[in-house]
Nucleic acid binder design. Sequence first.
DNA 1: GGGTACATGTAACTCGTTACATGATTCC
DNA 2: GGAATCATGTAACGAGTTACATGTACCC
Lengths: 181, 181
Amino acid sequence: MRTLKYAILGLINREPMTGYDITKEFNSNVLANFWYANHSQVYPELSKLIDEGSISFEVVIQGEKLEKKLYTITEKGRKDLMKWLVKDDPLEATPKDIFRLRAYFSDFLDLDELSDLVKQQKLKHVQKLESLQRIMDRTYPVPPSVKTREFGDFIVLESAIMREKYYINWLDDYLSHISRA
Amino acid sequence: MRTLKYAILGLINREPMTGYDITKEFNSNVLANFWYANHSQVYPELSKLIDEGSISFEVVIQGEKLEKKLYTITEKGRKDLMKWLVKDDPLEATPKDIFRLRAYFSDFLDLDELSDLVKQQKLKHVQKLESLQRIMDRTYPVPPSVKTREFGDFIVLESAIMREKYYINWLDDYLSHISRA
DNA sequence: GGGTACATGTAACTCGTTACATGATTCC
DNA sequence: GGAATCATGTAACGAGTTACATGTACCC
């Protein structure tokens, strides 16, 4: 499906970037909530995109002699990205979830052990939620308006927060079933 | 992380199964909501588990001469599974989400186009939710008690339903931001 | 001078999907 | 007899992770 291709095109479309910059974005606290990649995946993909003519680059000298490649999207790349953005694909397969898999097989654990496991899991999600909420409060005390770049950041951050809340709700529900037994 | 290994062990631990049976489970409407694999992944993994001594098999003749392999978990396999079930691992990386990635880059689409995209996506999630809800109503009109095998099915199905609801909430939230613009 | 961050690449390996390949059984 | 399902495998490829490998720039 070449999703990494479009993730990279989307970033470069905003402004020219180096492979290093792109990798940093993929590991930032907003984007990493729904897409990420290591530099070892990014650099080969950039070569591919050059071969395909979706991007071009110019070598920039940093300091004395450090060469970095600043990538820019081409007209072909931009068209390709646009087409991908509005494509009507069927729903992706549900993402895998190891904790759910464990829950599925946990019928032969004893109740105290199971309860501890679920509480441990809940704690982790509560901490993650708090961290996301802090970022939101700090960065977007007021929601930015649609059609600004900030709105993209805002709406996916909101989504990540809602996801953690739902997961915590599920774990609470799970715990209530256990304690009722 | 060998998660497939434990998914298979978890299934065989319930009762002896063939590779075909396991594959069917992975594509059933409950388990597939958080774990799945094709037969081309299952058969090689079964060979590995035999080599490791986690499972054993017996050949059963179906009809005249069709040989099928019925796999059973060994003591080693069961211990391994038990250890995995109660392991306290850090939270998994957030699952990737292509629709969120598209939302992230959508600031240069026009509002009608964006609104249509989000509505399309919502429709798909509403349909999925309805399908999950039907399975739930049909199969578990009353929640089964903890410590039964049915409870595993029930609690992960509940989770899948809650996930769809949250996703729909997010899309509604998204739409409200768009229409306010 | 030293540590951290900047910057780019390749190699080996695991995991997962799609396609190739074959044959038996069951039900109509 | 034919179609759907049961049943088991391998091959080729694509995606993703960890490790290997190298060098510069910037700040203290």
